[in-house]
Simulated assay, not measured.
Amino acid sequence: MVETGVARSPGPRPVGTARRPRERTSVGLALLAGTGLVFVVAPFVALLLGAPWGRLLGLAVSGPALEALWLSLRTATAATALCLVLGVPLAWALARTTLPCRGVVRSVVTVPMVLPPVVGGVALLALLGRRGLVGRHLDAWLGVSIPFTTGAVVIAEAFVAMPFLVLSVDGALRSADVSLERAAATLGASRWYVFRRVTLPLVGPGVVAGAVLCFARAMGEFGATVTFAGSLPGVTRTMPLAIYLAMESDPELAVALSLVLIVTSVAVLVALRSRWLRPSGGPS
């Protein structure tokens, strides 16, 4: 066989296995990246070095700590469920419908991400407080008062966390391949079947990623919660509020509670990332 001297091009790389070429990092960029990493990691290192390891277990499993942790887990889970019920349809409307002024609506949805949380709490009081726009009618007609209850914690957490879910699902829906949905519809599939068997699997990782971010944000919510729900032990005193109060009387307890909250948040993120958020075609 005669060699032609022309290199034969390799076959196409399977989808999901393509890798970007590694670029050499300049010294300046490496220094800035290292400084950014230190900026993020150093506070956690200081927290670990200053932790009262001799008393840590006793402080972490004390009654107030477990009570606040259990309340935080319950309210963050409920807030995430509420965000899923309301946020996924909202993301669908933003991504797939001809909603009037979609850009304005998308901007309004993201406001809680940049709004000081305490302002969000004041806004919730203006809406749902006993003298609020809606709250006064709930109190007069039904005898229902929402502020300073566990339900108020869930509402406050959902208010500040929902944008993370909506933006994640919105991005997943806009980047999904709609030709697959059209093909399924052409073959006679109903809208519900297309959504359940085609659309949902396509955007599932985006929904899970948004739910994880939503849960983590709800677990760490402080400003809107303390303003709208107060700090009643066993009722509205979540982990962030317990940490804040402990700083005034027992700093070691505050450090121990902070470590518990960090470990809980990281465990949730790592567990869900290994199952749902790992990119296809290679290690994350």
Rank of each mutant, 00 (worst) to 15 (best):
residue 97 T to Q: 07
residue 22 R to Q: 09
residue 34 G to P: 01
residue 96 R to Y: 01
residue 179 S to N: 09
residue 151 G to L: 10
residue 6 V to N: 07
residue 84 L to Q: 12
residue 147 P to Q: 06
residue 225 T to R: 00
residue 7 A to S: 13
residue 262 I to Q: 00
residue 223 G to P: 04
residue 87 G to M: 06
residue 67 E to R: 13
residue 264 T to F: 08
residue 45 V to L: 14
residue 168 S to Y: 03
residue 29 L to N: 08
residue 268 V to E: 02
residue 143 G to L: 03
residue 21 P to F: 01
residue 242 A to E: 12
residue 270 V to L: 15
residue 36 G to A: 11
residue 278 R to V: 14
residue 138 L to C: 03
residue 214 C to W: 02
residue 35 T to M: 12
residue 3 E to I: 08
residue 196 R to N: 01
residue 210 G to I: 04
residue 28 G to C: 08
residue 28 G to Y: 03
residue 4 T to P: 01
residue 144 V to D: 00
residue 189 A to L: 07
residue 56 L to R: 09
residue 176 A to K: 08
residue 172 A to K: 10
residue 72 S to A: 01
residue 21 P to H: 05
residue 101 C to H: 14
residue 242 A to P: 11
residue 228 F to G: 08
residue 221 E to H: 02
residue 64 P to C: 09
residue 245 L to S: 12
residue 223 G to W: 02
residue 13 R to T: 15
residue 206 G to K: 06
residue 280 S to H: 11
residue 107 S to F: 10
residue 155 I to R: 01
residue 40 V to D: 03
residue 92 W to Q: 06
residue 250 D to W: 01
residue 44 F to S: 09
residue 235 V to S: 07
residue 150 T to K: 00
residue 26 S to C: 02
residue 87 G to R: 04
residue 96 R to S: 11
residue 87 G to Q: 08
residue 124 L to E: 05
residue 273 R to S: 15
residue 141 W to V: 15
residue 190 S to C: 01
